[in-house]
Design a protein around this nucleic acid. Sequence first.
DNA 1: GTGTTGACTATCG
DNA 2: ACGATAGCCAACA
Length: 116
Amino acid sequence: MKKTLIPEHPAASNQVATNREAIYLALMSIPAGKVITYGQLASLAGLPGAARLAGSVLCGLPEKTELPWHRVINAQGKISLPVDSASYKKQLQRLKAEGVEIKNGKISLRIYGYNN
DNA sequence: GTGTTGACTATCG
DNA sequence: ACGATAGCCAACA
């Protein structure tokens, strides 16, 4: 039973239309200067194991979104985007601006990782 | 309802 | 440390 729920109908029920919305909420809870992996983000959204879902959601975000999508990186501590893409550079610079140190394109999850 | 796809992750060589 | 493989979940056609 798939039957995609109506995307525009959040006020009528406390339940999110799709899990994609849960990702948005989880993303908003990430403080500046910290980073989170896709897996943790999904878990935080109540979708353990759906790391790919988190990625798909961020991929669909508009460029002018307010969400701090740049704080999301992969488990390897790296930006999961093609290095030559504009989004990659943008994410890299935003992270630096928030005080996140990036060594050789890698971020220390041990230090900047968001746990909660 | 079935099959394909993806800003992923853990394991193995 | 790095590349290849298999496993996973949800959205979309």
